[in-house]
C-alpha cells in the first residue's frame, strides 16, 4: 500500500485523475462509446487510462483504428500486440478499402490525410458509435486549444467552433439525438511533456520509432522523411542514414522524423523540455497548408 506523502496531488496525478473521471463519464453516459487508438503516444496513454478506469474489469468499449494503409510497421505490430495483451476488440476503418470501393480518392500528392475523415465518419455511422474518445491535446494546435472536452458533432460529424456547448466545472453534457455524437478528449489539458512524464512514471511501452535510431531519410521542405514505399525522394535528392526519432506517429507519407540522440526515456524528456518547436510544427506536413488547416479539417469531422 502506498501512503500519501501529503494531501496534495502532483500535477501529473491530477491530470490522471481528471482523465479517468472523463473516461468514466463517457462510459456511464453514452450508449455506444469507442476509443480511437492509433498506436501513437497519446492514444497509448489514453488506452492505459481507460484500462485503469475500469480495472479489474476489461475496457468496456472497442478500440477503433482509422488505418490509412500507409503505416510504420513497428506501429501496427505494436497495435496488434496491445490489442491481444489486453483482450480488446479492435475495429479497423480502412482507408484502402474505401479507395478500392471508389468511395474516396487520394490527393494528387498521395496523401491520405484528408480522406481519413469520411472513413472515420463512416466507421462511426456503421457501428452507431455515439461517442468517440481520442488522445488529442489542446496544446497541439490553435484550433484544438478551443475545443471542449465533450465536443458535440452534428449528424454530419461537423464541429461548429462558434457554437459550442458551454462546459462548466466537471459536468459534461453527453446528450445527443440519434445520428449525432460526441468526440471526447480526456487528455485535453496534457502537454507533450506531460505525456512523456506519464510514460516514464507509469513505465508504459511505446513503439520503438519514438526512440532515436538509424534510419534512411531524405530532406523534404526542411523535414526529414523516411524513405519507404510511400515517400520516395524526388529525383536528384539523395537519401542518407541519420539518427532520428519520431515525435508524432501519423501517416507515413506525412509524418517527419526529427534528428535526435534521445534513445532513452530520460533523454526524450530532456529533449522535449528543451525543444523550441511544437511537435506538429516539427513533424507534420498536413498543418502547413494554411493558417486554418486544422480548423477546416475539424469542421468536416476530422479528429
Amino acid at each position: 500500500m502506498t501512503q500519501p506523502a501529503s494531501l496534495a496531488l502532483s500535477q501529473l496525478d491530477a491530470l490522471e485523475a481528471e482523465a479517468i473521471h472523463i473516461i468514466r463519464e463517457v462510459v456511464a453516459q453514452m450508449e455506444r462509446p469507442a476509443l480511437l487508438f492509433s498506436g501513437g503516444k497519446d492514444s497509448i496513454c489514453l488506452l492505459h487510462l481507460a484500462i485503469k478506469a475500469f480495472a479489474p474489469a476489461p475496457v468496456p468499449m472497442p478500440v477503433v483504428h482509422i488505418d490509412t494503409g500507409q503505416n510504420f510497421p513497428e506501429v501496427i505490430e505494436y497495435r496488434d500486440r496491445i490489442v491481444e495483451q489486453y483482450g480488446l476488440t479492435l475495429v479497423v476503418g480502412s482507408v484502402q478499402d474505401a479507395i478500392d470501393a471508389g468511395k474516396v480518392k487520394e490527393a494528387p500528392d498521395g496523401s491520405r490525410n484528408r480522406i481519413q475523415t469520411p472513413v472515420l465518419l463512416e466507421t462511426i455511422e456503421d457501428n452507431r458509435f455515439d461517442a468517440c474518445m481520442g488522445g488529442a491535446r489542446r496544446d497541439e494546435e490553435k484550433a484544438r486549444a478551443k475545443e471542449r472536452v465533450f465536443s458535440f458533432r452534428d449528424e454530419f460529424g461537423q464541429w461548429d467552433p462558434r457554437n459550442q456547448r458551454p462546459e462548466l466545472w466537471s459536468l459534461y453534457n453527453g446528450k445527443v439525438h440519434p445520428g449525432e455524437s460526441i468526440r471526447v478528449f480526456p487528455l485535453s489539458n496534457w502537454t507533450e511533456l506531460d505525456i512523456w512524464d506519464y510514460i516514464r512514471s507509469r513505465d508504459i511501452e511505446v513503439p520503438s520509432i519514438y526512440y532515436a535510431h538509424d534510419r534512411e531519410v531524405f530532406l523534404r521542405d526542411g523535414m526529414w522523411m523516411a524513405s519507404n514505399e510511400w515517400a520516395v525522394p524526388p529525383e536528384g535528392v539523395e537519401t542518407q542514414v541519420r539518427k532520428v526519432r519520431y515525435r508524432t506517429v501519423g501517416d507515413a507519407t506525412l509524418t517527419a522524423a526529427v534528428e535526435s540522440d534521445a534513445d532513452t526515456i530520460d533523454k526524450i524528456i530532456e529533449e522535449t523540455a528543451a525543444t523550441r518547436l511544437t511537435e506538429r510544427g516539427a513533424t507534420r506536413g498536413d498543418d502547413r497548408v494554411s493558417e486554418a488547416a486544422m480548423e477546416d479539417r475539424k469542421k468536416e469531422g476530422y479528429f
Binding site: 489542446r138 496544446d139 494546435e141 490553435k142 484550433a143 486549444a145 478551443k146 467552433p161 462558434r162 459550442q164 485535453s188 489539458n189 502537454t191 493558417e291 486554418a292 480548423e295
Partner: peptide, 22 residues
C-alpha cells in the same frame, strides 16, 4: 493571435470562445 486561433476570431480581431494554453 497566440490565443485567437479561429478564423472568425482573426478576421474580427475578437475572441469568440475560450482558448486554453499551458
Amino acid at each position: 493571435l497566440l490565443t485567437d486561433g479561429l478564423r472568425a476570431e482573426r478576421e474580427q480581431g475578437i475572441t469568440i470562445d475560450v482558448a486554453y494554453r499551458y
